[in-house]
Structure formats: C-alpha cells, structure tokens
Design a protein around this nucleic acid. Structure first.
Lengths: 123, 123
DNA sequence: CAGCATCCATAAGGATACTG
DNA sequence: CAGTATCCTTATGGATGCTG
C-alpha cells in the first residue's frame, strides 16, 4: 500500500512541503525529471543507483497523487510509460534549490562522502 | 538512542539537507527558535502542540549534533536550559523559506486542514 | 518493459513512569 | 524544570518471485 492520507493537519508550510518530498528518493526523482524533461521507468531507475523497483514505483505513485508528476502510458507492446514533472513539480523543484545549495555547503563543510553520479553531478 | 550516523553517502545537496530536517518537528523547532531567538525547553514544548518530551529531547539533541542548535545549560535550581540557533541553523532556515512558501501555496490549493497556532501564524 | 504481491528487517515515533 | 528509561506501535524501506 502507499502512504496513508496524512492524518493530522499541517502545522506550517515547511511541514506541508516536507510531506511531499520526504522519501528516500523523491528529491532525486524531482531532479532527474527536471533535468531530462521526460524519463521512462527504466531510465529513471538507472539514474537512481540502488533504488528498488518497489520504491521507485511507490514514490512515483505518491508524487503523482500529490500532483508533482505526470504519468503517460502508451498502449504498446512492449509497454512504455513516460514520467515528467507537472507545473507544481517544477515550482517545487525551484523552491528546493536554496536547500540543495545549503546541503552542498554542509557536505563540503563536514567532509561527507558522496556518490559519483555517472552524469556530471547533482551537486 | 538517537539517530544512527547515516550509513551511505549523500547523493546530492537536497539529500544532505533533508537528512537534517527530516523528523516530525524539526522544521517547526527551527521556525520557533528563529522567531524567538532563545527558548527554554518548556516554552518550546508549548510551541509544538502534540510533541512528546522524548521526541523534543531527541530532535534537539540531533540538531545540536548537526550543528544547527546551541544548548546553553545554567547550573541553577530549578534547572534552566536555553536553546537557540547557530549560524548554520539560521542559514538553513533561510534556505527553507521558499519551500515554506511553496507549502503554504499547496495548503491553500488543496484545502488542507491546518492547526490554529496560539501565536499569529507560521503560515 | 513496467509493474504488482508478499514477506521481512529496521527505523521512527509515541505512552507512560520515574529522577537529579 | 528538564530531562531518562522502558515498552510498544507504526512507518519506511528492502528482497524475492511473478505477470500482462
């Protein structure tokens, strides 16, 4: 099953925003889709080293429900499904930019380990 | 025990930033401390309706470890402890502002329920 | 290819009682 | 006042196998 419909009320805007980006891969999914415009399931999977099929599917479904991601299914054999960001997804991604910059600073400051992405860098 | 020292490497800045604000009350703790400058344990508790002592203590300790919060203990009877933000805490809070604004928009858009804060509003 | 179903391990959060 | 300690429930994420 997916995420339960969030029981209590939100306390503030941060709370409401964090609710839709919390999840191990959601920030990265947002980044991938924003960078490439459109991605198929398998492409997305390759872009997120270590993600399981289950988690990728689950996160994509939740983000679809939250109005961040658009899912386009083509009735072909073999099946093809393309994911892209909605306008809300794009604005969220822009709102996340300063946070990402802060995070990069934190990594640099504390000398955390990072992964080497095949594509140049998300940093 | 508190949070484990985070096993894997960070994938991107968002990832590294989310790691320190994930936790049911952390965004709000940041907000409270930024708004008031200095808060005692009990004041903080009143500002976070519904938080348990355990979670508040735990979150504060993690945020201290992450260099976001400063904890000042006064050797008095009865004991007094004051919490405030470090410079890193303040910059994080600023980086969170656009996300908070996005969240407020989302609440408005989707008609989510919110709590009525005693103090004017976190929204 | 793009998934769904099932089972399982760990992490996050909460309730309650007690203390320097 | 400002916490600890303990026990318990739920949420999150992962492994594996199967399917239209």
């Amino acid at each position: 099953m997916a995420r339960a419909p969030r029981l209590g009320p939100y306390i503030c805007g941060i709370d409401a925003a964090l609710d839709v980006v919390s999840g191990k891969w959601k920030g990265l999914i947002l980044w991938e889709l924003d960078a490439h415009g459109v991605r198929r399931f398998a492409e997305l999977r390759r872009g997120l080293p270590g993600v399981s099929e289950k988690m990728l599917t689950q996160h994509l479904r939740e983000m679809e429900t939250d109005g961040l991601v658009h899912r386009e299914v083509y009735a072909e054999v073999p099946p093809r499904v393309e994911y892209s960001l909605t306008e809300h997804g794009r604005t969220l991604n822009r709102a996340l930019a300063p946070l990402g910059a802060w995070g990069v600073e934190r990594i640099r400051r504390e000398g955390h380990e990072t992964v080497d992405a095949a594509e140049p860098s998300h940093l």
